[in-house]
Design a protein around this nucleic acid. Sequence first.
DNA 1: GCTGAAAGACGGACGTC
DNA 2: GACGTCCGTCTTTCAGC
Lengths: 153, 153
Amino acid sequence: MDEVDTAILNAVQSNPRITLAGLAALTKATLSTCHRRLRRLEDAGYIAGYRAIIDPERVGLTFHALVFVALAPGPVDRFEEFEQAASLLPEVIEVLRLSGRPEYVLRVMTSDSAGFNILYDFQLSDLPRVASLRSELILGVPVPARAIAIPSP
Amino acid sequence: MDEVDTAILNAVQSNPRITLAGLAALTKATLSTCHRRLRRLEDAGYIAGYRAIIDPERVGLTFHALVFVALAPGPVDRFEEFEQAASLLPEVIEVLRLSGRPEYVLRVMTSDSAGFNILYDFQLSDLPRVASLRSELILGVPVPARAIAIPSP
DNA sequence: GCTGAAAGACGGACGTC
DNA sequence: GACGTCCGTCTTTCAGC
């Protein structure tokens, strides 16, 4: 991890389709160096993958919410049951594990509030070990998930 | 938006580096059709952009939290002041606007808890119009932000 | 909407330090 | 072990049909 690596990570984050020649120009390293560095960063797990960002509203997913989930007491390793069941619901975009209670936040998206109500009342309430649910409507995302600043050393 | 478009969106989400030939094979459409459809989806805003996903832990960002922010009363249009100031902090990865109180959730990442404390006590507390803060430590992300299912019609 | 040809990018192999 | 150059292959792009 030197300056070339961090420069590559910073560049690739917001523009994964940049060419190796473009990276070479940015980093002032040679093309083949960028080639191998990028491969190394991928193989070493620095780059977890690539994504295209779809505009949810544009495809009809206008209802966006956070659902806080408190679980019933039990062996911690069985939390995985809940996690796996939650991940099978296509409306569940992301699952965060929190430190306290509620134990989880789900980020969910549906076409409309009717779709959300069905999801909430049936699918989410029926997830294994769920004790209680609370939801927060997301009105907007002023700052969409963005590139992270790579710490220097 | 027909089946070819949705197939392209679904494919591209999880693998933006797929070749046009690959898309053609998946969609059973011809290569040049995929080419123009993809361009159209980009230009029409269905595809908001492309990102490389960096593993935050791998680059030393091990502290991950949600910060709930309640704002002081005032004209709603001045919420933008807060949003813009928050977006200038590199540790703030994402900003969500909620429907009630607290009005915002910030997703933040720092190298360690010391870094978070400084961020919380000084930068976040000093954001314009902030009335109160509450934070939730994120222990993990069992289901990382994933591909959304494109609704049919 | 399809096909073909030219330009360009990628990925590997080799030689050098 | 890391870097730099070269070359074959695949991909993209743009023309004409």
